[in-house]
Design a protein around this nucleic acid. Sequence first.
RNA 1: GCGCCUGUAGCUCAGUUGGAUAGAGCGUUGGCCUCCGGAGCCAAAGGUCACAGGUUCGAAUCCUGUCAGGCGCACCA
Length: 546
Amino acid sequence: MDQLREALAAVARDLGAADADVQLERPREEAHGDLATNLALQLAKRLKRKPRDVAAEILAKLTLPPGVIEKAEIAGPGFVNFFLAERALGATLTAVLGAGERYGRSDAGAGRRANVEFVSANPTGPLHVGHGRQAALGDAIASLLEATGWQVTREYYYNDAGAQIANLTHSVQAWIRRLGGEDAAIPPGGYHGEYVRDIAEQYVHEHPSDAGGADLDAIRQFAVRALREEQDRDLQAFGVAFDVYALESALYAGSQVDTTVRRLVSAGHAYERDGALWLRTTDFGDDKDRVMRKSAEKGGDFTYFVPDVAYHVSKWERGFTRAINVQGADHHGTVARVRAGLQALEMAIPEGYPEYVLHQMVSVTKGGEEVKLSKRAGSYLTLRELVDDVGRDAVRYFFLMRRGDSQLVFDVDLAKKQSEENPVYYVQYAHTRMAGIFRNADRDPTAVGPDFADPSPLSAPAETELLKLLGQYPAVVEKAAEFLEPHRVIAYLEELARAANAWYHHHRVLGEPAPIERARLMLARAVQIVLRNGLTLVGVSAPERM
RNA sequence: GCGCCUGUAGCUCAGUUGGAUAGAGCGUUGGCCUCCGGAGCCAAAGGUCACAGGUUCGAAUCCUGUCAGGCGCACCA
């Protein structure tokens, strides 16, 4: 492909257009060949000639690399279509079988370090469905980066000491007093879920000396730990693991917050007004300036903006050349101000740092009606309940099959009731069928390597189609990683599974004449490898049996 | 009012960053089990790509405007 591109560039130079951008793409239509270029269309205007005439001259001057291209032809308004020789497709097969589980991986990231922050829910309640989308998305993005050569840290940031935690603490305290027979009300802004009562009961059980709930600090620590542990259990059930848990309170304790403010002031972008300390973020693309330290009458403490900036400084200083934040779209307002804060430090942090992957909200329908999301346990909306009901694989797959910036309707009834028709089963089933071939043949699939047999008997249309798809997988992974869009992998897997199921239905493997059987075993093994690699990449299992 | 995201088949959504006749699943209709797992395969019907302009060889894709939905717009986090 690179050879072809260079050959075309040489022709372009010859025609006096050395700066032409040579584009090679895979045509949608099979009749349009395996690769196509629009070079003639691009050049036609500046050469003031008809596109098809330019295409003819390109073709005449083109020196094709030997053995790779079978034929080339002019089509449509002036496209030049190239047809790959069969040998090239056979090479795909040996590439897949040779690389195995490494097929599709690359080292584009060259071992540089990337931080992917996601979920980052404060420990004020169980994880809900929206966190589930974020967990699936963040984990898959991290995996995509790993597959393309980045050294990835999965990070979870949470606040264990702010106003929301105080609300939680007082809510638990109120329940402790209720359990003691008092008539205590949940404070305004407090948490009403049943889990609050459960925590209160546990607290009383483990702290008999404080049955009255007087020790707020002890209650806070207990509640935060209990909810963090519950969230960890939920994430574990979902198959997501983090490398680093970062605490907001540590930024204060480690004086990073103070240091950040000092740097911002000395960089000259801060000013005082109405008794508060402001940062002129409008100098760096924000739409309004931000308060860093509140005025004395408002309490005189820092706004959340400051630790947010300090936190991202810490990512930079820990050596992450990329920081990717996966967040709900309701947080999009923070994007401009965090970046502006980092620029205002004048520490040579790149302008686009950190990168954001924002996903739209998940709405949940149950019984045909939309259910409002809230942090109430028992409302059938926690991630844990969804995973327990629908299954980890289906939940992961559903959350990833859509682009992040389209809204997602998760119909719980449908996911449960019609789980057999879920696309995830279709893809997994294709994998199971390939595995079944080796099971029935009583063969070890891992023994089928690139030198297992001669792949040339694979000539049926369904087979060349499969080989082409297998050859596309590395590019799919590369693009999905580049755009941080795991749904591209899902779409590819469905296409591959469709082609694999059609092939399986029309062609037998076992019992055919030996050269054909052995060649098809290679193809079946290659399909199995790529399906498994892709499913693993998006966090879905590839079962041998279902 | 301002900003970000979205609008594609009855429903849920893709669309390889500007390419050729806009695709898939579900649903609907009609076929296919002596066969490695039918959780499957083959086919049909179904479209003013929200609407109106513009850019150019060429637009679902880029620009402008309008309409509709979602989410933001604190000295809250």
